[in-house]
C-alpha cells in the first residue's frame, strides 16, 4: 500500500459519500445518471468475485464490502425510493449503456491476464469502469447546469483514478515484477474521459461561478 493508492481509495470513498449525501440530504437524484450507478454496481460485483476466496487484508475486504454495498444502495434508492425516484431525469438519462457492457465483455474475452472465469470478469470490470462515467457525463452535458454536490461527486470520482495512475507509476519504479498494463491503460483512458469535465469544473471554480457545461 502506498500513499497514492490510499489517497485514491479515500477519494473514491469521498465521492460515494458525497453522492449519498446529495441523495439523502436533498431527497433528489436530479443530475445523477442511474445508468452510471448501475454500471458501477456491476463493476464492483464483477471485480470483487474473489471477496471470499482471496483474503488480502482487513482494509481490502472492508473497502470492497463498502463499495459493493454503497453502489447497490444508490441503485436501489434511485429505483425504489418513492420520493427520490420522482426526481430522476429519466428522459435525459438515455445513454445506451448496454453497448458499454457488451464492448467491455468482448474486450475482456480478448485481452485478459489469464483466460479464467475470474480473470475475464476482472478485466471486464476494469474496462467497464473506464466507460461507466459516460452516461453521467452525457446527462450533465444535456442538463447543462451542474449542482455543487453532483459536480463534487464527479470531480472526486475522476480524481481517484488519477491518484491510481500515480500509484502505478510508483509501483512500477519500486517493484520488480509490476506490470498491470490492463489496469494502467484503462485507468488512463478513464481519467482522460474526465478531462473536459475537469476543465469546466476548474473554470467555474476559478470564476467562483456556477458550473456550466456547454450544451
Amino acid at each position: 500500500m502506498n500513499i497514492f493508492r490510499f489517497a485514491g481509495d479515500m477519494t473514491h470513498l469521498i465521492s460515494i459519500l458525497v453522492l449519498l449525501l446529495k441523495i439523502y440530504a436533498t431527497k433528489s437524484c436530479s443530475g445523477i445518471s442511474l445508468k452510471t450507478q448501475e454500471l458501477y454496481a456491476l463493476v464492483f460485483l464483477t471485480r470483487y468475485l474473489d471477496l471470499f476466496t482471496d483474503f488480502i487484508s482487513v482494509y481490502n475486504t472492508i473497502m470492497k464490502l463498502v463499495f459493493i454495498a454503497s453502489s447497490l444502495a444508490v441503485v436501489c434508492c434511485m429505483r425504489m425510493h418513492r420520493v427520490v425516484r420522482r426526481s430522476y431525469d429519466k428522459d435525459l438519462d438515455t445513454f445506451r449503456h448496454y453497448f458499454l457492457i457488451l464492448a467491455s465483455f468482448v474486450l475482456a474475452l480478448l485481452v485478459n491476464e489469464k483466460f479464467t472465469f475470474q480473470e475475464i470478469f476482472w478485466a471486464f470490470s476494469i474496462y467497464l469502469e473506464a466507460l461507466a462515467i459516460l452516461p453521467q457525463l452525457v446527462l450533465l452535458q444535456r442538463s447543462g447546469n451542474v449542482d455543487n454536490l453532483t459536480g463534487q461527486y464527479v470531480f472526486f470520482l475522476g480524481a481517484y483514478r488519477a491518484f491510481y495512475i500515480l500509484n502505478w507509476i510508483y509501483r512500477y519504479f519500486t517493484e520488480q515484477h509490476f506490470s498491470r498494463w490492463i489496469a494502467c491503460v484503462s485507468g488512463l483512458v478513464q481519467t482522460v474521459l474526465y478531462a473536459d469535465f475537469f476543465y469546466y469544473y476548474f473554470i467555474s471554480w476559478k470564476n467562483n461561478a456556477k458550473m456550466q457545461l456547454p450544451a
Binding site: 493508492r5 481509495d9 473514491h12 471485480r47 474473489d50 482471496d54 488480502i56 481490502n60 473497502m63 470492497k64 463499495f67 491476464e113 489469464k114 476482472w122 491510481y164 500509484n167 515484477h177 506490470s179 498491470r180 498494463w181 489496469a183
Partner: peptide, 10 residues
Amino acid sequence: SDNEESHDEL
C-alpha cells in the same frame, strides 16, 4: 505480463 496471483488493488 506475468500473472499476478491475486489483485491486491481495489
